[in-house]
Simulated assay, not measured.
Amino acid sequence: MAITISRTDYDELWRACNPAPLVSSHSGYCEQIEVVPEQFGEGYIQFIQLREINLALFNYQLHHDLYIRDEVFGAAWEFGFNLSGNCSGKHTGENFIEWGAYEGEGTWITYANDPVYKVDVHLEAPDALFQLITETLEELPVEIRQHIEDCNRNCFDEINVITPAMRSPLEQIFNCPFQGKTKQIYLESKCLELIALKLEQIKATERSPGTLCLLKPDDVDRIYVAEKILKANLDHPPSLMELARQISLNDYKLKVGFQQVFGTTVFGYLHQHRMETARQLLTERRMNVREAAQAVGYANQSHFAAAFRKQFGVNPKAYVIKGKIGLGL
């Protein structure tokens, strides 16, 4: 079953469900949380107004596929990151830029097969980005550079995959440990980090035009299964050949396809996820250094410490001590 609704009726249901949305104002920023109407699903969208940046955090699950009919016009200066969820032509694991003026009719579809877990970074004015990247503008592809310089052009989309480097600030935004002015500075820095990573991805794509093999939708699904297998077996990961066998792909297509989907090698991804998992275990004080090392597959604690230091610039023991001091323990 699917729900089809006009944008006007959709917005009215949101207003009726959130007659007095939870709003909190702080020095330098404001946040508002709106819950999803029960007719559609459950969860929330959180809007955070920062300096020249509107940050939107989506965390909800639909009961049914949702089709919104709309007549739209305006302008978008947005970077989006779909950690999970298939919305308006963007899918799980994809990031995108929408930039420029738009108008016309359309149907915006959000599917109920995956929970929606995403971050949108909206710039209030296009010149905010232009001022940030003036010195590196010449390094961007011609089409994107022209759109940034002339914001009155028709809107364009640029879609790519979320890289492991992007996942860390995305999760940190959702789990921001600060309040007040510190939270504002922290979130702004993470938004700028995401913008920088996205622009670097665009430049890298331009330098290395697509020579990779074409992947069928079923191949992409299998590569996402491979990712889940790696995450579930950090302590004893399968070999490349074994992983390929488990997802019924040959090892070449797995290697090339994984690089294409995730922007890194299979074991480059595994290493980064191991380090990030270990960091979370230490941050949440659920494990000591030895236990965290074993949990992510390191039998040798000194090898783990070296890898952790290379990834985060600090020894794991020093990281734990620093965290305790910050918490006043």
Score class of each variant (00 low, 15 high):
residue 64 H to S: 13
residue 7 R to M: 11
residue 69 R to Y: 04
residue 209 P to N: 01
residue 65 D to C: 09
residue 143 E to H: 10
residue 23 V to K: 12
residue 217 P to Q: 09
residue 93 G to F: 02
residue 209 P to Y: 02
residue 145 R to L: 06
residue 325 I to N: 03
residue 209 P to V: 04
residue 254 L to Y: 01
residue 20 A to Y: 03
residue 195 I to Q: 15
residue 310 K to Q: 11
residue 83 L to I: 03
residue 89 G to I: 00
residue 207 R to P: 02
residue 316 P to T: 09
residue 284 E to N: 13
residue 324 K to V: 10
residue 287 M to T: 05
residue 86 N to H: 12
residue 22 L to P: 02
residue 97 I to E: 01
residue 86 N to V: 05
residue 134 T to F: 07
residue 22 L to V: 13
residue 191 C to I: 09
residue 281 L to P: 03
residue 240 L to A: 14
residue 171 E to A: 05
residue 96 F to S: 00
residue 276 E to Q: 13
residue 260 Q to K: 14
residue 282 L to I: 02
residue 83 L to M: 06
residue 37 P to R: 06
residue 297 G to R: 07
residue 87 C to H: 08
residue 186 Y to M: 00
residue 329 L to K: 12
residue 327 L to Q: 15
residue 221 D to M: 05
residue 203 K to S: 13
residue 50 L to V: 05
residue 301 Q to S: 06
residue 229 I to P: 12
residue 200 E to N: 09
residue 324 K to M: 15
residue 229 I to S: 09
residue 89 G to T: 03
residue 167 R to Y: 03
residue 191 C to Y: 09
residue 126 P to L: 06
residue 318 A to Q: 13
residue 26 H to P: 03
residue 228 K to N: 09
residue 15 R to M: 13
residue 101 A to Y: 05
residue 170 L to E: 02
residue 112 A to F: 01
residue 327 L to V: 01
residue 179 Q to H: 05
residue 155 C to I: 08
residue 23 V to E: 11
residue 150 D to H: 13
residue 269 Y to E: 00
residue 32 Q to V: 09
residue 132 L to W: 08
residue 53 I to T: 07
residue 307 A to Y: 04
residue 227 E to C: 06
residue 303 H to Q: 10
residue 51 R to T: 10
residue 210 G to Q: 11
residue 286 R to E: 12
residue 265 T to S: 15
residue 104 G to K: 12
residue 207 R to Q: 14
residue 220 V to N: 03
residue 68 I to L: 09
residue 327 L to G: 11
residue 247 I to Y: 08
residue 33 I to V: 15
residue 315 N to D: 15
residue 97 I to Y: 02
residue 226 A to C: 12
residue 210 G to P: 02
residue 294 Q to E: 14
residue 73 F to A: 12
residue 94 E to N: 01
residue 31 E to L: 08
residue 119 V to T: 07
residue 185 I to R: 07
residue 213 C to V: 09
residue 104 G to W: 11
residue 263 G to M: 00
residue 26 H to S: 11
residue 96 F to W: 00
residue 255 K to Q: 14
residue 97 I to N: 01
residue 230 L to W: 02
residue 188 E to G: 09
residue 61 Q to M: 08
residue 328 G to K: 10
residue 216 K to D: 14
residue 289 V to P: 07
residue 14 W to L: 12
residue 154 N to L: 07
residue 144 I to H: 08
residue 40 F to L: 12
residue 259 Q to H: 15
residue 17 C to F: 07
residue 203 K to F: 04
residue 34 E to D: 06
residue 11 D to Q: 10
residue 166 M to R: 03
residue 272 Q to E: 13
residue 214 L to P: 00
residue 172 Q to G: 01
residue 44 Y to A: 07
residue 233 N to R: 15
residue 64 H to P: 03
residue 246 Q to M: 15
residue 10 Y to W: 15
residue 10 Y to G: 06
residue 223 I to A: 00
residue 275 M to K: 01
